[in-house]
C-alpha cells in the first residue's frame, strides 16, 4: 500500500500502565473542542418538542467523545483479575482507512505533521468514513450542538461548533499546532522543528498521571521517538496495516495482547 511520508509525524505514546481512566482528558477535549454537553431538549426546535427527546449521555453510542477511554480486563476470575484503561484518540493513521473512502475530500492526510484532517463545512455526513474506521475514532453529530442557557457565553476559540449531520473526530487539537508554529515564527525559530512541549494537545496537557507523551515521532529530540521503539510499545490492530501514529505501551503482556487479534496464531 502506498503511504505518504512526512518529515514531521505527530504522534502519541500512551502508557497504559499509567492511565488511571479518570476521564480528565475526555473533559478537557470537550472543552477545548466545543463539544456541547448532551442535553435532551432543543429549545429552538418545536417539532422536536412534540416528538422524541434528543439523546443524553446514557446512550454511549451517540456521544461525541473524540477521546474515549476504554476499560480492559484480563478476563480472569477473582483474585487474578486485572483491569487497565486505554484512552483512544484518533490514531492519525499513516495509511488511514477513512481518507480514501470520503467521496468529497472532507478528510485528508496531506499536511506536514501527518494529522488526518476533517473539514466540517465540506462533510456531507454520509458516514462512510465511520464505517471504514475500525477504531471508532469518528463520530457523527446526531444533534445540533446546544449548550444549556448561558454556558455558551464564551466558547473555546479553537474550533467552531459543528452543525448536526457532519462527522467529527480528534485532530490532535490542530489549532494548537497552528499556534505553536506561529509562535515559533514570531520567536525566529523554525516552525518545522518545534521543541518538545511547544505543541501539546489538550488531553496530553491535562493528564494528571502523565500517561500521554506527545511529540514528533520523526524527531530524535522528542521523547516519543525513542518510546515508540520500546519493546513494550505496540499499536492497535497493527496487522490491519493502518500504521497508526498513536502508540501504546504496557509492561503487562495481557494488555499488549489486546492491542491486536491473535486468535489465528501469529502468522502474518
Amino acid at each position: 500500500m502506498h503511504m505518504k511520508e512526512f518529515k514531521i509525524k505527530w504522534g502519541m505514546v500512551i502508557d497504559i500502565d499509567k492511565c488511571t481512566g479518570c476521564g480528565a482528558c475526555m473533559v478537557a477535549c470537550q472543552v477545548e473542542n466545543n463539544i456541547a454537553p448532551m442535553t435532551k431538549k432543543d429549545p429552538y426546535n418545536y417539532v422536536q418538542a412534540l416528538t422524541k427527546d434528543r439523546d443524553d449521555a446514557d446512550n454511549k453510542l451517540r456521544t461525541l467523545t473524540w477521546m474515549n477511554v476504554y476499560e480492559l480486563s484480563n478476563g480472569k476470575s477473582f483474585p487474578e483479575h486485572e483491569v487497565a484503561y486505554l484512552p483512544r484518540p484518533c490514531m492519525q493513521c499513516g495509511n488511514p482507512a477513512c481518507v480514501p473512502v470520503c467521496p468529497v475530500v472532507a478528510t485528508d492526510k496531506n499536511e506536514e505533521g501527518g494529522i488526518v484532517s476533517q473539514i466540517y463545512p465540506r462533510c456531507i455526513g454520509c458516514r462512510y468514513c465511520m464505517a471504514a474506521c475500525p477504531y471508532h475514532a469518528r463520530y457523527f453529530n446526531w444533534w445540533d450542538p446546544l449548550w444549556p442557557e448561558g454556558m455558551d457565553k464564551q466558547l473555546s476559540p479553537a474550533v467552531s461548533p459543528r452543525p448536526r449531520g457532519v462527522v467529527e473526530k480528534c485532530n490532535f487539537c490542530h489549532t494548537r499546532y497552528a499556534k505553536a508554529k506561529d509562535q515559533a515564527r514570531e520567536n525566529g525559530e523554525d516552525p518545522m522543528n518545534l521543541a518538545e512541549g511547544a505543541y501539546v494537545p489538550a488531553c496530553a496537557e491535562i493528564c494528571p498521571s502523565g500517561a500521554i507523551t506527545f511529540g514528533d515521532l520523526n524527531n530524535p529530540e522528542h521523547k516519543v521517538h525513542e518510546l515508540a521503539k520500546s519493546p513494550h510499545a505496540f499499536r492497535l490492530l497493527e496487522k490491519l496495516g493502518l500504521h497508526p501514529q498513536v502508540y501504546y505501551m504496557s509492561k503487562r503482556e495481557w494488555v499488549r495482547k489486546q492491542g491486536d487479534n491473535y486468535n489465528a496464531g501469529d502468522k502474518h
Binding site: 417539532v47 422536536q48 422524541k52 434528543r54 446512550n59 453510542l61 469518528r138 449531520g165
Partner: peptide, 11 residues
C-alpha cells in the same frame, strides 16, 4: 427536520 438522531443509527 430533527436530524438523523431520530433513527436507530449510532456511531
Amino acid at each position: 427536520y430533527n436530524g438523523i438522531g431520530t433513527t436507530g443509527l449510532d456511531n
